[in-house]
Computed example of a mutant assay.
Amino acid sequence: MEHLIRVQNDYDRQVLAWLRGRIGDAALQSAVHRLAGPRKPYLSTLCRSLGIRPPSRRQFAAETARIHRAVGDSYLARIREILAKAPAQEAQRQ
């Protein structure tokens, strides 16, 4: 999709992924073609033409942090399971 829209930074990539999930590729391509000109449209221009306000950088950061915490928590739970089994296995060996 980046070949149709001007994406300049990571925030733009996040907004583009969010927008693709929200309205779908077909609707996004249709909107891009309506804005067609000599240059690729900016993502902000595309959002304004669709009447959609994307999440802020802070909202994306909060969501990313939430996902990272969830992943970290699942790894810690797995490590705790392994460590809980270790004393039982050591006792069986003796």
Rank of each mutant, 00 (worst) to 15 (best):
C47Q: 07
R6K: 15
N9A: 03
V32Y: 03
A62T: 05
V71A: 12
S30H: 12
I82T: 09
P41R: 07
W18L: 10
H68S: 08
G37A: 14
L4R: 02
I52S: 02
L43W: 05
A62K: 06
I23H: 12
A84R: 13
R39K: 12
F60V: 12
A86C: 08
R53L: 12
R80M: 06
K40C: 00
G24L: 08
P87Y: 05
Q89R: 14
S74A: 15
R39P: 00
R6F: 06
I79N: 02
L35S: 02
L50R: 11
P41K: 08
A62V: 09
E81V: 04
S44M: 03
S56G: 13
D10L: 14
A26E: 15
L76A: 05
R20N: 04
R78K: 12
D12Y: 13
V71K: 11
R20C: 00
N9V: 11
D73C: 03
R39H: 11
L83Y: 10
L16N: 03
I23Y: 06
Q8K: 15
L46G: 01
A86E: 15
L50G: 14
I82S: 01
R69V: 06
S56W: 04
D12G: 10
A17D: 15
H33Y: 07
T45A: 11
Q29G: 08
Q94Y: 06
S74P: 00
Y42N: 05
R78Y: 07
R20P: 00
M1N: 03
G72L: 05
R22G: 00
A70L: 15
T64E: 14
S30L: 12
L50A: 14
E2G: 03
R39Q: 12
P41F: 02
S56P: 01
A91M: 15
A31M: 06
G21A: 10
R39Y: 04
R6Y: 08
G21S: 11
A17S: 15
H3T: 15
E63L: 05
G21L: 07
A31V: 09
Q94C: 05
S56E: 10
Q14R: 15
S44W: 01
R13D: 00
R69Q: 09
E81S: 07
D12E: 10
N9I: 06
P87V: 04
T45Q: 11
A91T: 14
I79S: 07
G51C: 02
V32R: 03
R57P: 07
P41E: 08
I82C: 00
S44Y: 01
D25A: 07
P54F: 08
P55E: 05
I67M: 05
A88Y: 13
P87N: 02
L16T: 01
I23S: 10
G24M: 10
E90N: 10
C47N: 07
A65K: 10
R39A: 05
R53K: 14
V71N: 01
A70R: 15
E81Q: 14
H33C: 03
F60Q: 11
V15Y: 04
A36V: 00
A70Q: 14
R48A: 14
K40W: 01
A77Q: 12
L4G: 00
Y42W: 09
A36D: 06
I52H: 02
Q92I: 14
Q92W: 03
L16D: 03
Y42S: 03
A65L: 11
A84Y: 11
R34Y: 00
S44K: 12
